[in-house]
Simulated scan of single mutants.
Amino acid sequence: MAKEPTLPKELTTLSFEDALKELEAIVQQLERGQVKLDEAITAYERGALLKRHCEQKLAEAKMKVEKIVFSADGSVGSQPTDLQ
């Protein structure tokens, strides 16, 4: 199984909103089909990394909002975290 490439440092510092904005721009560029093949491949690779970064940011946000709860019967669930 192939190991996923690590995210470049400059990409990990992007906010979710900035990464999503860049990803949307790449998708629009590729959909128009007005880029050379080499540029399209590079853009696609960058887009894949941006997608993964956005997914990680969403997972981090979800963990901050939810709290893992263990029930008396040993089952695991989650409940909203009190953010107040």
Rank of each mutant, 00 (worst) to 15 (best):
M1K: 09
M1P: 02
A2R: 14
K3G: 09
P5T: 12
L7G: 05
L7M: 10
P8Q: 11
P8D: 06
E10I: 10
L11D: 05
L11W: 08
T12M: 10
T13Q: 13
T13S: 15
L14Q: 09
L14W: 09
L14D: 04
S15R: 06
F16P: 01
D18F: 03
A19I: 06
A19T: 07
K21C: 09
K21W: 08
K21F: 07
E24C: 05
E24I: 09
E24D: 12
A25E: 12
A25L: 11
I26M: 03
I26Y: 04
Q28E: 13
L30T: 07
L30V: 10
E31A: 05
E31Q: 13
R32Y: 01
Q34K: 14
V35L: 04
V35H: 06
K36A: 14
K36L: 08
K36M: 13
K36F: 04
L37T: 11
E39A: 13
E39L: 03
I41P: 01
I41R: 10
A43N: 10
Y44H: 04
G47N: 05
A48W: 03
L49F: 07
L49Q: 14
K51H: 05
R52K: 03
R52H: 07
E55Y: 01
L58N: 00
L58E: 00
A61S: 01
M63H: 07
K64A: 12
V65F: 08
V65G: 03
V65N: 05
V65A: 12
K67S: 04
I68K: 15
I68Y: 01
F70G: 06
F70H: 12
S71H: 15
A72R: 11
G74A: 13
G74S: 13
S75K: 15
S75A: 15
V76T: 15
V76W: 14
G77V: 12
S78D: 11
S78C: 09
Q79K: 11
P80E: 14
T81Q: 12
D82R: 06
D82A: 08
L83T: 14
Q84D: 00
Q84C: 00
